[in-house]
Amino acid sequence: MSIIAVRDLSKQYRETLAVDRISFAVGAGQTVGLLGGNGAGKTTTIAMLLGLLIPTAGTIHVLGHDMATDRFAALARMNFSSPYVALPHRLTVAENLRVYAHLYDVPAPERRIAELAGELDLAALLDRQAGTLSAGQKTRVALAKSLINRPDVLLLDEPTASLDPDTGDLVRGWIERYRAESGCAILLASHNMAEVERLCGHVLVMKQGRVVDEGSPASLLDRYGRADLEEVFLDIARDRRRAEAAA
């Protein structure tokens, strides 16, 4: 059974069709990547999955709940991380995590915060204000927030954007470990092709609001005859194959 089931999903803003009849599914323990350039519709898709945005057409079911009519039942078992949505800067890391532990009704919140601090190497940061942290530290805290309720569904919007290679690698490692331990379904939007190749078993390539191709990273590489996903991405983004054929 699919944990996330999206069917014919569209979002229209006045004259702009941001997402155009996309359908996909994510199963338990699966990580699906959303790949696409700026404005391809990735963030809009994630916002609709989270209930932040009402679709113009189509349906979204998460954990069996229809997000149009029963989103709060699903949201309690979902979580989200994005470098573009901040945590209150004046609160300490511990206070921020405590707030979200309450919002997600996490049992024994202090124990959960201590667990996450251990797993994500945050113990030394718990009493520091979130606004004083480096980009890498903020990302780890955001990841801790997104794991506070041990979600069954995790939506990650560019989770390693602006991170140095070392921290980015650590974050990817934590995501892999959490998925393996929990069987969580993960939808990952990223511009980092190496990250998508490493984490995702299935990739949806979006362009101008549509899913223009999909498959496992290996099958996409085969199909496009490329050595890495970045080349595949450029083929699709720039219509290179069509251009090459015409030449």
Binding site: L52, F72, F80, Y84, A86, L87, P88
Partner: peptide, 13 residues
């Protein structure tokens, strides 16, 4: 604090 996104994707009604 640009925190509304996190608040509204939580189960908070």
């Amino acid at each position: 604090s640009r925190n509304l996104g996190h608040v509204f994707v939580s189960p908070l009604r």
